[in-house]
């Protein structure tokens, strides 16, 4: 069913893009790439890994592994309004009704054997304990090998060393499953791609800071978290370039001045996934979400000569996963940089 969903999405979006070959259509290109990823995840002929949110998707991609975080499925079930069926399954099995809706939906899908079968699972201890618990359930239910990346909370030399050693072990674990060794050359390319994407991301975010902002409430929705799935690839660079071009085009054509931006907002955590017209409601009020907490580049460039340490530093330094004072400081910095008037913090 989900394979068909993604297949139809790929066909539909490709048709639309073909009808407008000159258009920038960043969001469409982005959704197209994600749909292609979805198709791969639900096909049976790829090395598939389901992972925690902070897993190194660039490193996995360089090892020819198609990988994704399980919350992607939670969001998908929510946006297609099919989560209710899976909630029931999870709740009937004893998973609490007031637990995180992303994980409840995935848990239901795991228990119903409705998740696409992975070759192996890579759990991450950040950003939350529930996500890791769900991945353990997934591995248990599907009898799949499990690798855990423990991401320390404190940014220390010991923590960086610990995580980079784990990444090296993860590479051995993946190689054992795919029967392919890590190609340093491929990893180097992936990290270069990641760096190029990161530079473009910074430029995108700088453009969104202008007043009025060229963004509307949808264009960069859930961007920062999901783009990490693609950033190690050329497709990721192309998507980032398309977003940058689109925002520049909007500024050039002064399209964003039509948005009548009265209030600039920050969205804390990730967006609401189920169909709910909050973006339109805010737009009617002249409120524009100019920044999302998770749309930011909080890492230094990757060093292809020192890949594991670079990735480890990147994984630990996400303010969302650190202690409250680091996260609050990050939010304050964003608030100043984007000159916001207020913030919305949903509870998933």
């Amino acid at each position: 069913m989900m394979y068909d969903h993604f297949d139809n999405a790929v066909k539909g979006i490709t048709d639309k893009l073909n009808q407008d070959p000159e258009g920038i259509n960043a969001r469409k290109k982005y959704v197209l790439e994600l749909s292609k990823l979805g198709k791969k995840l639900y096909s049976k002929d790829e090395n598939i890994a389901w992972c925690g949110v902070t897993a190194p998707f660039d490193l996995l991609g360089s090892m020819d592994v198609t990988s994704c975080f399980v919350e992607f499925v939670g969001a998908l079930l929510s946006s297609t309004q099919t989560a209710g069926y899976f909630f029931e399954e999870a709740e009937d099995s004893g998973f609490a009704t007031d637990s995180c809706a992303y994980h409840r939906a995935v848990m239901g899908a795991v228990l119903k054997n409705a998740m696409p079968e992975p070759d192996f699972i890579i759990g991450t201890s950040s950003p939350c304990t529930a996500g890791l618990a769900i991945l353990e359930n997934f591995a248990h239910q599907y009898k799949k090998d499990f690798f855990l990346l423990n991401v320390p909370q404190n940014y220390t030399q010991d923590a960086i060393k610990y995580l980079s050693s784990q990444l090296e072990e993860m590479v051995r674990f993946v190689s054992d499953h795919t029967k392919r060794p890590l190609s340093k050359q491929k990893l180097g390319i992936a990290l270069e791609n990641f760096n190029t994407s990161s530079t473009l991301l910074k430029e995108i975010y700088d453009l969104t800071k202008t007043k009025p902002s060229p963004v509307d409430n949808n264009i960069l929705k859930d961007f920062g978290t999901v783009i990490t799935l693609l950033m190690g690839s050329q497709e990721g660079i192309d998507i980032c370039q398309a977003f940058k071009d689109e925002l520049n085009h909007r500024i050039k054509t002064r399209r964003h001045h039509d948005s009548k931006e009265k209030i600039r907002l920050m969205w804390i955590q990730n967006r609401i996934q189920y169909p709910f017209p909050i973006n339109e409601m805010l737009e009617d009020l002249g409120a524009v979400i100019v920044v999302d907490e998770l749309n930011d580049v909080t890492w230094e460039p990757m060093d292809p000569d020192n890949p594991f340490e670079s990735i480890a530093k990147r994984m630990i330094s996400i303010p969302f996963s650190m202690n409250a004072s680091e996260r609050i400081k990050h939010l304050q910095d964003l608030a100043c940089a984007y000159r916001i008037d207020g913030a919305i913090n949903p509870c998933h």
Binding site: A90, S93, A96, D98, T129, A133, E136
Partner: peptide
């Protein structure tokens, strides 16, 4: 405990 994800998430497999 209510809201204890580490335990609540493992209840189905324990059951």
């Amino acid at each position: 405990l209510k809201f204890c994800d580490p335990y609540l998430a493992r209840i189905p497999m324990i059951r």
